[in-house]
Simulated assay, not measured.
Amino acid sequence: MSNIEWILLIITGFFLILLFRYIQLKKQIRNLADQVKELNCGNSEQMLDISLIDKDLERLAGILNQYNIRQRHAIASVLRNEEYLKESVANISHDLRTPLTVILGHLQLLQKENLESSQAQRIKTILGKAEKMKELVETFYDLSILEEQQTVPEKETFNISNLLINLITENAVALEKKNILPEINLPDYSIYVYSDRNMLERILQNLLTNAIKYSAGIIKITLLQKEDSGIIFTIENPIHDNFEIDCNRLFDRFYTGDKSRHDGSTGLGLAVVKGLVEILGGSIAAKIQSNRLSIILEL
């Protein structure tokens, strides 16, 4: 064999070795990329394989593993703090409810006393603020319970027609203050549902409160029985021209269509409604047509 043939053979062998190493390296890079993708998608919690043929590639995999460990520790810390915050909000909200109830009770008793005009006005102002505070506390408590994701509905069969009529009656004072005479459309027969009574009462109360607060006219309330024994509840009210409501965000936390926020709303009431409806396996949606807001609940 001549020298030229030996040189060509050596070059060919060297080329084949480089080609084999290149193919192996590309294969390991693709494998490493797939592992990183699985980690980012949350489909895997395993560390990256660092048994690689290239030392620089092994070093990169090692650095990525260290970064992954730090990220896990950071996420775990955030989750612990989040759980602590949720628990704190629930506990504080729960602890505030009792003293607020006592304060409201004594203020209501004071209103019945023979007070001077200025004193009666001050009691009225304090009572209004205390009632607002109680509403906020109850809303935050509801949200904290929903966040725990452990709320299990206690279902029973009950008359939702009577529940709705009772709620409207209980809100008669609030309706009267805004000169609202609700238009109520109920079937001639009672409608019964199998659901969690307390949750459904909270849902209907929040929807009614929201309508009373933002209505620019008559509130229309409709309750229908579906063929599958479910129900469709609709509450409709005209809205003020200065309200810019995004129906896609209406049930988001802290969203309010009133840009001025003069009403003191936190935008939490409808977020609680959505959370409770989802727990009960129902659906809720909103639409605006001819400057009238309609919220449709199906269970």
Rank of each mutant, 00 (worst) to 15 (best):
residue 222 T to H: 05
residue 163 L to S: 01
residue 271 A to P: 03
residue 274 K to Q: 11
residue 169 T to E: 07
residue 198 N to W: 06
residue 211 A to M: 00
residue 167 L to E: 11
residue 264 G to W: 08
residue 285 A to K: 10
residue 269 G to Y: 13
residue 282 G to N: 03
residue 190 S to W: 07
residue 241 D to T: 12
residue 203 I to H: 05
residue 244 E to Y: 13
residue 195 S to L: 06
residue 285 A to I: 06
residue 236 E to A: 08
residue 272 V to K: 06
residue 260 S to E: 13
residue 192 Y to H: 04
residue 276 L to K: 00
residue 169 T to V: 12
residue 242 N to S: 09
residue 281 G to M: 06
residue 201 E to L: 07
residue 177 K to D: 13
residue 198 N to M: 07
residue 176 E to W: 03
residue 259 K to S: 10
residue 191 I to P: 05
residue 229 S to D: 12
residue 219 I to A: 00
residue 194 Y to S: 11
residue 230 G to E: 00
residue 264 G to I: 01
residue 249 R to F: 15
residue 216 A to D: 14
residue 267 G to E: 12
residue 164 L to W: 02
residue 210 N to G: 03
residue 213 K to L: 07
residue 231 I to Y: 03
residue 163 L to H: 01
residue 285 A to P: 04
residue 226 K to T: 11
residue 200 L to V: 15
residue 201 E to K: 09
residue 209 T to K: 14
residue 273 V to Q: 04
residue 260 S to W: 13
residue 243 F to E: 10
residue 211 A to Y: 03
residue 194 Y to H: 10
residue 281 G to K: 03
residue 286 A to F: 09
residue 249 R to T: 13
residue 204 L to T: 09
residue 283 S to T: 08
residue 180 I to W: 02
residue 279 I to E: 02
residue 170 E to L: 12
residue 221 I to W: 01
residue 217 G to R: 00
residue 232 I to R: 12
residue 164 L to T: 05
residue 284 I to M: 05
residue 202 R to I: 08
residue 206 N to T: 01
residue 264 G to K: 12
residue 193 V to E: 02
residue 250 L to C: 12
residue 162 N to W: 01
residue 193 V to D: 02
residue 229 S to E: 10
residue 198 N to V: 11
residue 187 P to D: 03
residue 255 Y to Q: 09
residue 173 V to N: 15
residue 276 L to M: 08
residue 248 N to I: 07
residue 240 H to E: 15
residue 177 K to M: 14
residue 220 K to I: 10
residue 220 K to E: 11
residue 181 L to S: 13
residue 216 A to G: 14
residue 250 L to V: 11
residue 286 A to T: 04
residue 263 D to S: 14
residue 205 Q to D: 12
residue 181 L to N: 08
residue 170 E to Q: 11
residue 186 L to I: 09
residue 189 Y to K: 09
residue 187 P to A: 03
residue 171 N to K: 11
residue 236 E to Y: 06
residue 282 G to Y: 02
residue 231 I to M: 06
residue 236 E to N: 09
residue 185 N to C: 13
residue 230 G to I: 04
residue 256 T to D: 08
residue 165 I to N: 03
residue 179 N to G: 10
residue 254 F to C: 11
residue 179 N to V: 09
residue 172 A to D: 10
residue 164 L to S: 04
residue 280 L to M: 08
residue 252 D to E: 15
residue 194 Y to I: 15
residue 181 L to K: 12
residue 180 I to A: 07
residue 164 L to D: 03
residue 246 D to M: 07
residue 201 E to I: 11
residue 181 L to E: 12
residue 284 I to K: 00
residue 203 I to W: 00
residue 174 A to K: 09
residue 229 S to C: 14
residue 192 Y to A: 08
residue 283 S to W: 05
residue 162 N to L: 14
residue 198 N to T: 13
residue 246 D to I: 15
residue 180 I to V: 09
residue 254 F to A: 13
residue 230 G to V: 05
residue 182 P to K: 03
residue 219 I to S: 00
residue 181 L to V: 15
residue 207 L to F: 05
residue 192 Y to G: 07
residue 197 R to L: 06
residue 247 C to Y: 15
residue 185 N to R: 05
residue 267 G to S: 07
residue 174 A to M: 06
residue 195 S to H: 04
residue 282 G to R: 00
residue 244 E to K: 14
residue 277 V to H: 02
residue 267 G to A: 06
residue 216 A to L: 08
residue 172 A to P: 03
residue 257 G to Y: 06
residue 185 N to S: 13
residue 270 L to R: 11
residue 234 T to P: 07
residue 191 I to E: 00
